[in-house]
Design a protein around this nucleic acid. Structure first.
Lengths: 350, 350
DNA sequence: CAACTTTTGGCAACCGCTTGCCACACGCTT
DNA sequence: AAGCGTGTGGCAAGCGGTTGCCAAAAGTTG
């Protein structure tokens, strides 16, 4: 009934902007409670510093006025913003959703605002954000940073940050235990009788991509497998077609793919070409993103607690910001991985 | 040569925390350029207000010092924060990722920071966030708000906001053209020979859920179909099992499901139970989320430009904040929908 | 060249809150 | 009773900008 369109015409009357009512300030509260603003400030931030009776009066006044301190003003004078920026290379990638979810959750629990930034896989944008936001964030979480070691070192000197999935000697880091994961995956392939394996590479600037390949090559060689490598490919399902075709051409029967997005794309292409998975070719993805369990066939993949990794990253950053908790904040957290075996892997073709 | 760094040297003592170097302020720039701070401020915000030569000097100085204005301080005095809060009921839901992506993109283009908030499907949290952040955001975008009409009306009076997928007479709204979508879907089902149809309901507090059901019932009845309704179910894949079982029990051969998440969950359950889709039952989802194209079978679903909807919402909000653009800001935007037919729908069983 | 208009840029008062420093009051000790 | 320690709360100086107001400088005009 209440048709939204009808009202639209009338609503325009008062000029477009909704007028903001004046919000109560700390002064209003102070006045109402009969104390100085400084006392109000202290009552709210360091309650033990003020007499319980006074504090009660102040809290009452604040409640009555519905007072909310301005984080801006707070930040201005105290120097801390109570915000943390989370930089991800591609907000489009479900993998980062998981980490964002983790950071969001933990930050909220700590009463800190999350500033989400998409750096579009570019180190320039990353650097730029780091610079522009240095005033508006107390710290940074860099997911899969594209920065060079030198840049990272420099940046980490001037602002608190923690990196995720990007080794760094200069900043605390949380990492996925990639080496172990790759080894597990190769073990799985080996036990299914695969001899020719292929690594499907992701972005060359990705540190974890480099790591994965390195371990892959080492371990596969040690096992006496025939090792191939194709790529790099953009970590998107749309790149899967090219990757699938190239993979087939290598003659490998088992592929370990940089990430699930790419792996799912390959699955689609392989199906389209009539190449059966896993009968003709086995595919192992990485990250166990949303969708990996219901794609066709369900994807065998390297799982790890991504969301938890996000939470850990936040904890590490917060510890860094809050020197109270002993300056012995951990510098490295390694998240365990395990292989989740679904239906995209099977015995090597005869 | 007042070196801004000299002052910082003493600040080093701490230890664990990375020490922040003192950042140049507008005063440093003013000094270096030989002008007053007010001039610097103006040169940066209203360039035409200052002599080109002076401005050049200032810009040069700013660049040399690597000056970045503090958004906090800016906000304090000017009253605007240059941030917009986006409230979503569940950051875990891929549907919202799309909209977040849209808002993020558009906000960034406008140089506005996005504050992402997960309200956990709760109207209390939503209200709370709206209240707590009124000082830290210039405006709000409420995705699928859980607020009552009255609450919404009240809130929209005190702060600029736009709602998404939630009709409102009090605030600008962007909506998905649900009625048309449902009708398209029913038409599709009808043309495939289905006579018994079922609506699988989502959260009762969701406005779009109510809308969908209303139109579903009307239109299906008009077509002389046997209409069923089951639910409510949480919009998650995990609720799909219960939904699938209930749907089967109704005897319906075609289901229109509140959203893709739920639909995909149903697909999984149906497959597990050996009920073939679409041979035994057709399923239509809604939203065309990530994964809908590669689940098994690929899901027929109601598509709409969600990401674009996010962008539109931002534009509407920005227009509201910026009265310059004529106060004729649109009050309602309806995003078109279309049915994306994949493989989860087919002829009704004989 | 004087009178007048328009630019341009400085002064200073905030914006709302934090915090170092100090004063007062109260309760104890000696 | 004087001396003190301690707990409380006020004063006021910022934090880093913005902006209304005004005066000096520059440009116009008759």
């Amino acid at each position: 009934m209440a048709d939204p369109a009808t009202k639209a015409s009338t609503a325009a009357g008062s000029g477009a902007g909704a007028q903001r009512e004046r919000h109560p300030t700390i002064r209003d509260v102070a006045e109402l409670a009969g104390v100085a603003t400084s006392t109000v400030s202290r009552a709210l931030s360091r309650p033990e510093r003020v007499n319980p009776r006074t504090r009660a009066r102040i809290e009452e006044a604040a409640a009555e006025l519905n007072y909310v301190p301005s984080s801006q003003a707070q930040g201005l004078s105290s120097g801390r913003t109570n915000a943390v920026a989370v930089l991800v290379p591609d907000i489009t990638n479900p993998f980062y959703f998981d980490i964002i979810r983790g950071t969001q959750h933990q930050l909220k629990a700590a009463g800190v605002t999350q500033l989400l930034v998409d750096t579009e896989e570019s180190s320039e944008m990353e650097l730029d954000a780091l610079h522009k936001m240095r005033k508006s964030a107390d710290g940074f979480i860099l997911a899969a940073s594209r920065l060079t070691d030198a840049q990272l070192a420099e940046v980490s000197q001037s602002q608190p940050l923690v990196t995720f999935n990007r080794a760094s000697t200069s900043a605390p880091t949380v990492m996925i235990d990639t080496p172990s994961a790759i080894i597990q995956a190769l073990e799985h392939l080996a036990s299914l009788g695969h001899h020719k394996v292929c690594y499907v590479a992701g972005p060359p600037t990705s540190w974890s991509n480099q790591m994965r390949w390195k371990v892959f090559e080492e371990d596969a060689t040690k096992r006496g497998m025939e090792v191939h490598r194709i790529g790099p490919y953009a970590p998107k399902t749309t790149s899967g077609a090219a990757a699938a075709d190239a993979a087939v051409r290598t003659g490998a029967t088992g592929c370990i793919v940089f990430n699930d997005l790419l792996a799912i794309g390959m699955l689609q292409r392989l199906k389209a070409r009539g190449i059966r998975v896993p009968e003709d070719m086995s595919i192992i993805g990485s990250d166990d993103i949303f969708g990996a369990d219901f794609c066709n066939p369900p994807l065998t993949t390297i799982s790890s607690p991504i969301e938890q990794a996000g939470r850990v990253a936040v904890s590490m950053l917060l510890a860094q910001l809050n020197p109270l908790s002993g300056n012995a904040s951990r510098q490295l957290a390694v998240m365990p991985t395990h292989l989740t075996i679904r239906e995209s892997t099977g015995p090597a073709p005869a």
